[in-house]
Design a protein around this nucleic acid. Structure first.
Lengths: 236, 236
DNA sequence: CATAAAACATGATAAAAATCATGTATAAGG
DNA sequence: CCTTATACATGATTTTTATCATGTTTTATG
């Protein structure tokens, strides 16, 4: 079972230099620190569910979370992968709507919760944070638009290669320098790529046959990153 | 040729109650009014090009604009359709990057340009506007995520029906109450749906045969909206 | 540790969609 | 108005991808 340090203060948080909050004024950080509620979620648990109302935002201290949508036919589409330092739940909060996606923990994860009213009031009084927030939203929007274009125009083989590279960018490698530092089921990878599970399994086998990856259960090792990049056919 | 009223002031602009700027403080509106530059663009002209640096944001007074991405193989993907009251160019500006999409005018369009420095400074000093901006970004992000899910999970037939409904939501009908109030080529519709042009042509013919639409060159009439909604298979 | 359930794997088949080919209509330009 | 280019249309074919079927492996659980 994963061990976490005791929940400390926002002022000494590991993520204080990487999260959006790093640009917030000290006085507001102090206030957030007082009102935040930290919790540890176990693998498979849910931070929030699509369709319910947001009461605040979540700040990941350490761990991994997936954000996923249910399609009209109930099929999961993974929208984003999150790690320590990432904030989530702000989209629905800002739009004033229900959550349009569910946040599910991929491995034991430590999360701080910041109440809605506080978050909004800080945002309204701290132009620096507001600006960071707009940047964050802009970046997410950009990523979504690129993904949209790839989804519309690229074959599954390229999208799978791209997804593997994306997983690596997000969670990095384990100590050995080749194993992706997350365990995702084939179905989850498929739901990230936007394809059928069988197609993903088949293509992963091909990638293995081609020597690009090595598969050991849910462990995926990237053996030839350059070839994967070529397979992904990325221009930008 | 389309006729436009003389460019008036922001204070008397038709869009002053619908655009994001409606929540900005009067003093800032006045400043924007002084520095804005209004222009009329003709069909096919470009407001800005993917890859170039943003110098400000564009506010559509009247007209229609498409925002499109080029895929890695050079194929257009239409990301958004814009109309009077919409603002564009803020995404790249906020991220501090080059434009990731091009804005091309679909019909003669009147646009006001607001310089980067002014926009940023107003945004930093007017929490109300900043908040509206975050809402706008959140809404766009939401739309992009839904589109992404549909692109991944829905067949082209459903996506085309959805796209026709989307065009209707965006630009509405002409005076007759059935003709979509925009002229898009089949290729543009395909680039909105995310499919091959031939597939779009074929399916539009089917929709016509089924009595859902009527086609007269680039004029598209929606005859049975309910059936279209059913065909789009929308749950949410 | 046995047993059930879930996840993985792979072949066969069907369905969906893209591409190619060709012809027609429509719009643009001299 | 004629010519040329472009857009539209539709059939034939191929490619891609999903689905179905079935077996194997792994994982969870009493």
């Amino acid at each position: 079972m994963t061990h976490f340090h005791d929940a400390t203060t926002c002022q000494s948080c590991n993520q204080r230099f990487t999260s959006v909050f790093c640009k917030a004024k000290q006085e507001f950080i102090a206030e957030i620190n007082e009102q935040k509620v930290c919790n540890v979620y176990k693998k498979g648990q849910t931070l929030f569910n699509e369709g319910s109302y947001p009461f605040g935002v979540y700040c990941i201290n350490e761990g991994k979370v997936k954000l996923s949508h249910l399609g009209d036919d109930g099929k999961e589409q993974i929208i984003r992968l999150l790690r320590g330092g990432d904030v989530l739940g702000y989209r629905a909060l800002l739009s004033g709507e229900r959550y349009s996606a569910s946040a599910i923990v991929l491995e034991d994860t430590q999360v701080c919760f910041i109440p809605k009213e506080l978050f909004i009031s800080v945002l309204k009084n701290d132009a620096g944070l507001a600006f960071e927030m707009m940047k964050l939203l802009s970046d997410e929007l950009h990523k979504a638009e690129v993904k949209l274009t790839h989804l519309a125009q690229k074959p599954i083989r390229e999208r799978l290669a791209e997804t593997l590279l994306f997983i690596k960018e997000t969670y990095g490698y384990e100590a050995d320098g080749v194993t992706l530092n997350v365990r995702l089921s084939r179905e989850e990878i498929a739901n990230l790529v936007g394809t059928a599970t069988e197609s993903t399994i088949r293509l992963l086998s091909e990638f293995k046959k081609d020597g690009m990856v090595e598969l050991e259960g849910k462990k995926i090792k990237i053996l030839r990153q350059k070839e994967l990049i070529r397979t992904a056919n990325l221009q930008d």
